[in-house]
């Protein structure tokens, strides 16, 4: 295993474990991230503000008035060495409802046509796999998940949409995601997930965390509306779709 140290200005640096999407790289990233968080919580990393784990790298943000690049690097070196032996830890498992019907699935027919299979086969493929949450980013609570079954690995749409509705379940470049917010977007929209992925009032505002596993369960448009109504009136707790603990913190320890 190897890594590179990259400068990200005077107040951050990035430890890069590779350049591709690969669960083995993610295991190293998450092992280093967990080790840094433990050191930070123990008060051993003065000036380190926070970390940002991604598919293949960990960016460490620090206050240049308190510490500097060399001091941060010196403190990280043994943690990086240990992270290289990091094994894949099992995150939480989720089963999230998705409506793959009608206006919730504007690109389903096009995707089926592009691959040359039926729409129901696309749904079966997409909901038949278990996905790893590689990272949360781009937008608050936005999960990058993979890997898609081979037939579903399409490039982005030629024409990005100016407006992708919140809750859209999308695929592109071998990955699948759920848009927590209305946003411009270039992915193919296969369905709609009624469960809010981000809520600032929750103790953990992002429903999903890097390392979690997600399966999608097809629901009808009617069921989807019922779930939305139940969530809106607080009759339904989003945690009901959590299949199993551990929590991310235990997972990290």
């Amino acid at each position: 295993m190897s890594f590179r140290i990259l400068d990200a200005g005077d107040a951050a640096l990035t430890i890069e474990f590779g350049s591709i999407i690969d669960p083995a790289l993610l295991a190293e990233v998450n092992a280093l991230d967990a080790a840094v968080l433990r050191r930070k919580q123990a008060g051993k990393l003065p000036g380190v503000i926070e970390t940002m784990p991604t598919f293949r790298s960990l960016t460490v943000f620090f206050d240049p008035l308190v510490t500097d690049r060399d001091a941060v690097l010196a403190a990280l070196q043994p943690l990086i060495a240990a992270a290289e032996h990091g094994s894949t830890t099992d995150g939480r498992h989720w089963r999230l409802p998705v409506c793959y019907e009608g206006e919730a699935a504007p690109d389903l027919a096009e995707v089926a046509g592009a691959i040359g299979i039926g729409e129901d086969e696309v749904v079966a493929l997409h909901s038949g796999a278990e996905y790893l949450v590689y990272m949360i980013g781009f937008l608050p609570g936005f999960p990058f998940m993979g890997d898609l079954p081979a037939p579903l690995r399409l490039p982005r749409r030629a024409q990005p949409r100016v407006r992708v509705p919140a809750g859209s379940v999308a695929i592109a470049t071998g990955l699948t995601a759920i848009y927590p917010w209305e946003s411009p977007g270039g992915w193919h929209l296969l369905g709609r997930c009624p469960v809010p992925l981000f809520d600032a009032r929750r103790t953990s505002p992002s429903l999903l965390a890097a390392g979690d596993r997600v399966r999608f369960v097809p629901v009808s448009a009617q069921e989807c509306r019922a779930i939305e109504a139940g969530l809106a009136s607080a009759q339904i707790d989003p945690m009901q779709w959590l299949e199993s603990a551990p929590t991310p913190a235990e997972n990290a320890a």
Binding site: G9, T14, I21, T54, F55, S57, T59, M135, G137, F144
Partner: peptide, 11 residues
């Protein structure tokens, strides 16, 4: 294009 990684203010 790269595989997405972290941005920082100033990137």
């Amino acid at each position: 294009e790269i595989v997405s990684d972290a941005t920082v203010p100033g990137s």
